[in-house]
Design a protein around this nucleic acid. Structure first.
Lengths: 349, 349
DNA sequence: TAAATTTATCGAAGCGCTTCGATAAAACAA
DNA sequence: TTGTTTTATCGAAGCGCTTCGATAAATTTA
């Protein structure tokens, strides 16, 4: 015997009966479709409230062949990074998703992505209406996603001519360089790694452009790149060593990201090079640690939550576009958006 | 005309036909239920693979009245905290969820939770089979969740006799105190805030117990509490001021968490109090910033991902328990688990 | 005023599964 | 042997929705 009172689930049928309507009419009211008289609509809405009716997600998904889910794909290592950059992008997307009535399903993938084997569950099960892919991921995965036919946008990464959203790296870097120049610096070095990553290369371009505009036409001996490694604290440290051992005496260093900047400052500290007195340092990203580094790091803030928000909004736009201007949007090549940045001046400059 | 080739979705019917079976038999194979001969099972599995069949989540959820989702409820501010403590717990849960074939839906709630109004969508829509609630949240919400009848566990928080998982705060604090004592410290202060939070009070108890065991029976003038505020960087700073202005000269300070410890160190730095020479500092949590503070902070590491993992595992256990030993589990009061910790010694001690 | 169109409502089919009998063969007991 | 239980398989109902006609009244157009 079961003595527990189980609240019987209120279905669309109950609402229909209560409002003297058919389930189809109720459905139309819920979905704002078709023709329903104001009167009936009012009745139905009233019944819905009265009965506390909430549509069953599974049922409507099954019937309408949607899922009401958005997938968010991210590399595992991008999560386990000490810096929650992508995490915050995810949060931004999650936050925005509420407004559009989607749930966001997170899927982390390994760095050594193998097609088939590591395919995210939400892709295999086609349990999403659209997908946001954040950060650099395997091309295989991207091809797989494209093949699936599920609409998607990339965030903070580019690949082929897939739609993407990115930081305005070039302009932000330009601004950083301008700032350093305005502070009277003349010998400015750029430290970077993984120059094949679009974001990095754009930052480098911004740097070069800024220097060029200031009359430094040849920046080649100012640029230090670790081509084989990613832009981490360690590579920043290493390039710091390389830089000083090369005999160069820059008065300022612009790093491809904060991690490298912090690594660089670590090297400087260990070698009694005073920051900012002897050399000013500027990073990129404004990670958590930037505020707490010693000295606190001047850097370019990226609005991470906004980043995610924008991604979700862009995706829903694609999903709702009934094919009409969407195709033209794609074809015109403006399938790209940028997120604004802001130079945050702290004590490292 | 639509010339795009749309791969027709493979359904259970297709598999059944292909394997010369009925859909019910296929279903049984998929769900590992009922009686199916080895032969037929083999055929069916083969057909599934051959056709690339993947069951539709919506359909099976509708039919079986499950959702295959786990809700993860978290306060907004716990996400926007500069420290991704709960974020990493979430990740741990998400990671573990794959093994159990659940999707994790994140729901953030505002700090000023209002029943009805702010009820997470996943609760309203009953779109989850179970719920993980992380961190301190409004009692109203907890009551609401309980009322919903959806199984849930609390993480890093306690309320009434609801099942929960927490850090072994007491023992960890005890260990920290022991460590400080072993380093020869005698005058050890405790800095805390929000002492009504179970975690904080447990940490304080651990501290007191440790001191007691070492012969310091009266710790009351060693404890500095900000009763009205939460344990933030700012309160750590404030209590630092209060501590030194009180004329006390502790040789070591144990803070209720890292944020406070870092705030305290900030005060110390500004007032030329040398750490660890003049006063050693120990925190709790091992947040990202702890490694980068100056000096790097000795602290108690909490395994956040493991925390989330455990929560999810615990919840699925509850979900799978068909009521049998579950009830006894509840009634016996052992509806509680703890996550291990580790003392991380850095340069602040 | 008749024909065409728009508005309003509903019944029923169907989305892709699970699960409940029904049926019957095989295995075991008496 | 007969009766009982276990094993195997299937058909059909049903989960709670959406959506496609069908139908008809109200409105517009010719």
């Amino acid at each position: 015997m079961n003595t527990v009172k189980v609240k019987k689930k209120v279905t669309i049928k109950d609402v229909a009966d209560h409002a003297n309507a058919s389930t189809s009419t109720v459905s139309m009211v819920i979905n704002n479709k078709g023709y329903v008289s104001d009167e009936k609509r009012k009745d139905i809405l009233h019944s819905i409230k009265k009965l506390g009716y909430v549509p069953s997600a599974s049922a409507r998904n099954l019937a309408s062949n949607r899922t009401n889910n958005i997938g968010f794909i991210l590399r595992e290592s991008h999560f386990t990074l000490s810096e929650p950059f992508y995490t915050r992008i995810f949060l931004g997307a999650e936050f925005e998703s509420k407004k559009h009535n989607y749930y966001v399903l997170l899927a982390t993938i390994s760095d050594t992505y193998k097609k088939e084997e590591d395919t995210p569950r939400l892709l295999k099960e086609r349990n999403v209406d659209g997908i946001i892919i954040a950060g650099k991921v395997s091309g295989e995965l991207l091809e797989e996603v494209e093949e699936s036919g599920i609409p998607f946008v990339l965030v903070d990464y580019q690949y082929k001519s897939f739609p993407y959203i990115s930081v305005d790296n070039r302009n932000a870097s330009l601004e950083a360089v301008r700032y350093l120049l305005s502070k009277g610096h003349t010998e400015i070095s750029f430290l970077g790694a993984d120059p094949y990553h679009p974001s990095i290369s754009e930052r480098l371009e911004g740097f070069q452009l800024g220097m060029l505009k200031a009359g430094y036409s040849d920046t080649s001996n100012l640029v230090f790149l670790d081509e084989d490694d990613s832009p981490t604290l360690q590579t920043g440290y290493n390039l710091g060593a390389k830089l000083f051992k090369s005999g160069k005496k820059p008065t300022a260093v612009f790093c491809a990201n904060d991690a490298m900047a912090i690594g660089f400052m670590k090297y400087a500290e260990q070698h009694k090079i005073k920051i900012p007195e002897e050399v000013a340092v500027v990073g990129f990203d404004d990670v958590e640690g930037a505020k707490f580094s010693s000295p606190p790091l001047t850097t370019i803030r990226v609005f991470k939550e906004q980043f995610g928000e924008l991604a979700l909004r862009y995706l829903t736009e694609i999903l709702n576009d009934t094919g009409k201007d969407l195709s033209s949007k794609y074809e015109r090549g403006n399938h790209m958006l940028t997120v604004p940045t802001e130079l945050i001046v702290r004590e490292s400059t």
